[in-house]
Design a protein around this nucleic acid. Structure first.
Lengths: 208, 208
DNA sequence: ACATGTGAACTGCTTCACAGCG
DNA sequence: CGCTGTGAAGCAGTTCACATGT
């Protein structure tokens, strides 16, 4: 398989969302044009994105909603559940741990870590905040798939180094800092400061 | 001014972060190469990014940390404060409203809205949750600059339409849905579901 | 007739490489 | 000599346009 662009994967994720919505509305087929309108892209883009993985449509007709849904789940690796740990039990970590959308999509939060003794042992729903000191042991025992980082920026790189050497290979970073990871580790960033500054730039330079 | 790529603006935001860090470490000058290493890019990229806005460096020397910091603040529109409202007082909205990083960077959360009567009137810090019904009036009176959307996905588009017709021109959307806005409105998305699915894809297709 | 699938053209971001200047 | 600033080249992602299959 040829290398797939990040932008393509993001759009596949969107298409899947529309397909799920279409299923709920009882639609049986959908065209690349309809998928494109909802995703703010073009029909050619939709077809090109899908073409990297195979031929899923019927000429003259469009795509079968259930079949394309299943194909996208397969492509995105969503036919299985993923074990997620959250590192950092601050405001955002807490909010994420309790966020329903995760489990609904097959991302099961199985542990939350913090190093603050006041937080360790606290319970939310079925989760107890664990001691950061135990994280290496736990990773080697429980093999979580994805770590979500919600520590303060100052600690994030140190924590990442620990997670990576303990074996984590997929990280979602919320700390407003660019982390360094080895090439076999996949890192995605959610950087609200950056997005806000993007809005600030747009507002400032609107009428150029 | 020529149209600036989104990716460029995001990097400028990163450069600014490193510059602030460099200031704290007492550095006086910095080279494009150093900026590049921290941002996971190349020195040519750094120089090209900056070149869209002017010449900030000294040949043979590099960039003055305080001068480049100030220039980037200017470019990104960060020499003023921005008024931010949060729409949706759920888990994530609550976490964001209390997030210190916002105010530190000049983004002042001035109001939080929800339509749930049980939440309206609740106080956090200096903020009281306001009734969603009053949002149009408030926008016209208080002229907030940026709205952060943390409503459930089902309600997000309706809320956006209300915000836009009330005059909002910059939106940061946390709902896992692609929103439609007119071309004069700037919309940025933070979509955790999409990032997680990107990680799922990477983990699944790693050894292609 | 209609919508897909895809090579070819195009657009625009990134990288190169070097002239220019301190 | 070192590092910036920048045209030119390279490359990746997007769009076009049409042959193809139903």
């Amino acid at each position: 398989m040829r290398r797939i662009a990040d932008s393509t994967v993001r759009r596949l994720s969107l298409y899947l969302r529309f397909l799920e919505e279409s299923t709920n509305r009882g639609l049986v087929t959908i065209s690349s044009d309809e998928l494109a309108r909802r995703g703010g892209t073009t029909s050619a883009q939709v077809r090109k994105d899908l073409s990297f993985f195979g031929s899923f449509g019927k000429r003259g007709l469009g795509y079968s909603v259930p079949e394309l849904t299943e194909s996208l789940r397969e492509i995105l690796g969503l036919r299985r559940d993923w074990q997620v740990i959250i590192v950092g039990a601050g405001k955002i970590g807490t909010a994420l741990a309790q966020y329903r959308g995760f489990r609904q999509r097959g991302f099961r939060v199985t542990a939350v870590y913090d190093r603050d003794p006041k937080k360790i042992g606290t319970r939310w729903d079925a989760l107890t905040v664990r001691d950061m000191a135990e994280i290496e042991r736990d990773i080697q025992k429980e093999h979580p798939d994805i770590a979500v980082l919600t520590t303060p920026a100052e600690e994030a790189q140190v924590v990442v180094d620990r997670l990576v050497s303990a074996g984590m290979r997929a990280l979602l970073n919320f700390a407003p800092i660019q982390l360094q990871v080895p090439p076999d580790v996949t890192l995605k960033n959610v950087n609200m400061a950056m997005e806000l500054e993007g809005l600030s730039f747009a507002l400032t330079n609107r009428d150029r």
